[in-house]
């Protein structure tokens, strides 16, 4: 017969209380960091942002004026990269989830997609420069930058597409096959419409990612300063993240440019908040829709 020490349960209880609070405090520390960053950038940037800031060209060696060309440039890069990446990514997701059988082929695709998503963005920049800028001779341009960013965002789109297709219950497919529909028809008319809101979530998240990437466009698209908006796909463009980098590290007068930098950072943060909020809403909407069925 063994006897357990009487104080053991009390000791356990207090250890638990101490460590639970430690875990709580550290976790909220993480959230506090996030809030600090958001608050800092919002409060400082808010004083700068105005209609003029968003719609004017930079002035005085980028120490004053606005960030209009950078906004437009980032917009071009988003549109360009998504036009390329979205269709390919969705088709690839369809292939992996609907066509590829569980085997070596599927495994290879998944490993490769996984690898692609792990490659550092600066390596995408190197690759984009070697292939698009030099080998294909596009030069540093919107098209080269868009292509580079497209490759970078592919894995995210493929994965969200794959997941959203996986979430579609097999009974839908079987019901459609049962009516004599072909596989492709079933995917087009039954599976894709159900999965669509979630696929769009992937698109929105990729937009968020693409809008903030700097390293891939350093040598493929971004211009330090352009007095006019880009006229064609083969022009360079300014971009928000690169603009923030430039005016906070290598402008003509760093102190004078600080407010411009705060404003630019806030615009970037707002894009991220918008994207995450929208994606969250869509996901909730999707979850409810699936539940209703």
């Amino acid at each position: 017969m063994i006897t357990f020490p009487e104080n053991a349960d009390l000791k356990k209880k207090w250890t638990q209380i101490v460590f639970f609070w430690t875990a709580r405090i550290l976790s909220f520390g993480v959230i506090l960091v996030l809030i600090t960053i958001l608050y800092f950038i919002t409060s400082k940037g808010f004083e700068v942002i105005s209609w003029d800031f968003l719609t004017e060209n930079p002035k005085d060696g980028m120490n004053a004026g606005g960030i209009f060309p950078a906004i437009i440039g980032t917009l071009y890069l988003i549109i360009g990269s998504m036009i390329i990446a979205f269709p390919i990514g969705v088709l690839a997701g369809i292939y992996v989830n609907e066509y590829a059988r569980n085997g070596i082929a599927k495994r290879i695709i998944q490993i490769m997609t996984n690898n692609l998503s792990g490659i550092p963005s600066i390596v995408f920049g190197l690759f984009g420069m070697a292939l698009f800028v030099n080998y294909l001779n596009f030069g540093a341009s919107i098209i080269a930058g868009s292509l580079t960013l497209a490759l970078l965002s592919l894995p995210l789109i493929i994965r969200t597409t794959e997941e959203s297709l996986k979430a579609v219950d097999n009974t839908f497919r079987h019901a459609s096959y049962g009516l004599g529909a072909s596989k492709l028809y079933t995917i087009r008319k039954v599976v894709l419409p159900i999965a669509f809101p979630n696929i769009i979530t992937g698109l929105i998240l990729s937009i968020g990612r693409v809008s903030g990437e700097t390293a891939p466009i350093l040598f493929t698209a971004a211009a330090y300063f352009l007095p006019r908006l880009p006229q064609s796909l083969t022009d360079q463009c300014m971009a928000l993240p690169y603009h923030l980098y430039v005016i906070s590290t290598s402008g003509t007068d760093l102190d004078k440019a600080r407010p411009m930098a705060y404003g630019t950072a806030l615009v970037l943060v707002m894009i991220v908040l918008l994207v995450n909020g929208l994606a969250g809403l869509l996901r909730n909407y999707f979850a409810r829709k699936v539940k209703m069925k």
Binding site: L34, I41, A215, L244, A261
Partner: peptide, 12 residues
Amino acid sequence: LLSGIPSVVYGF
């Protein structure tokens, strides 16, 4: 959200 913030903003 923390993972969505661009690295250049963290840098800044």
